[in-house]
């Protein structure tokens, strides 16, 4: 790897340095736009005691759900954790800690974390259990909660196309949390469907500029559909 060539050739290399007890921020919404091969590599590596920051926690046997069977995750920060029986079981037994976070607040926590903003104020959650223990301040007659931003030791991201500079574009709604996660990792790893030649991506259309990205790997994806709905 030299200069701006961020390509790595194996998933082992892509997640080199990931250790027990680290915080991993993952892109994806439901099973859409999840870094499925990077998750599979974490399973293979057997890294444990992870804090995972992700909107959802996968389903039984797919996505982040695969990290539950060997109890690799000790804490989850997410907005919605349904659709996962093993997760429910571990939650009820107290084997896993979950911090439920409103979806927009979670997105902003990642964005702010990546942008060097330690905290922000939002009206979301005022007067609800989410507000417990948090500073409330009034601006223009309305109450707002102080929410702290999030950064991770690693960010794992699913893109559509990237070049070797680490510039990334996402496809359709598989974008979701991915560009935010990408900014918030000390080491950001992006897996994509295609690595294109330098110059092929239009600079005006880049979603994630390469400065945020440390490693790029090309993979193949199952792209499982959670709710298959068809027009009648």
């Amino acid at each position: 790897m030299a200069g701006f060539d961020k390509r790595v050739s194996s998933y082992e290399e892509a997640l080199a340095g990931l250790k027990d007890g680290m915080t991993v921020i993952a892109g994806g919404f439901g099973l859409c736009g999840i870094p499925e091969n990077l998750i599979a590599e974490i399973k293979r590596k057997g890294t444990r005691d992870l804090t995972v920051v992700s909107n959802n926690c996968g389903v039984d046997g797919f996505g982040l759900g695969v990290l539950l069977s060997d109890r690799q995750i000790s804490k989850v920060i997410a907005s919605y954790v349904g659709e996962n029986k093993l997760f429910e079981e571990q939650l009820l037994k107290g084997e896993i800690e979950v911090i439920l976070t409103p979806q927009g607040t979670l997105a902003e926590k990642m964005r702010a974390g990546g942008a060097g903003i330690p905290a922000f104020f939002t009206a979301t959650g005022v007067g609800t259990p989410v507000a417990e223990g948090k500073e409330v301040r009034e601006f223009n007659g309305r109450k707002y909660l102080m929410e702290e931003s999030i950064t991770g030791d690693f960010a794992i991201v699913k893109g559509w196309k990237a070049d070797h500079f680490g510039n990334v574009v996402y496809r359709h709604t598989a974008q979701n949390f991915n560009p935010l996660a990408a900014t918030a990792g000390k080491i950001t790893v992006v897996e994509v469907e295609e690595i294109v030649e330098p110059g092929e991506l239009d600079p005006t259309q880049i979603h994630t500029p390469g400065i945020y990205v440390d490693r790029v790997i090309c993979g193949t994806f199952e792209k499982r559909i959670e709710q298959r709905t068809i027009r009648k």
Binding site: A78, S79, Y80, P102, T122, T124, V126, V130
Partner: peptide, 11 residues
């Protein structure tokens, strides 16, 4: 299971 985006929407 979580609030998803509901708290942001109502706020």
């Amino acid at each position: 299971k979580g609030m998803g985006g509901a708290m942001d929407l109502v706020a």
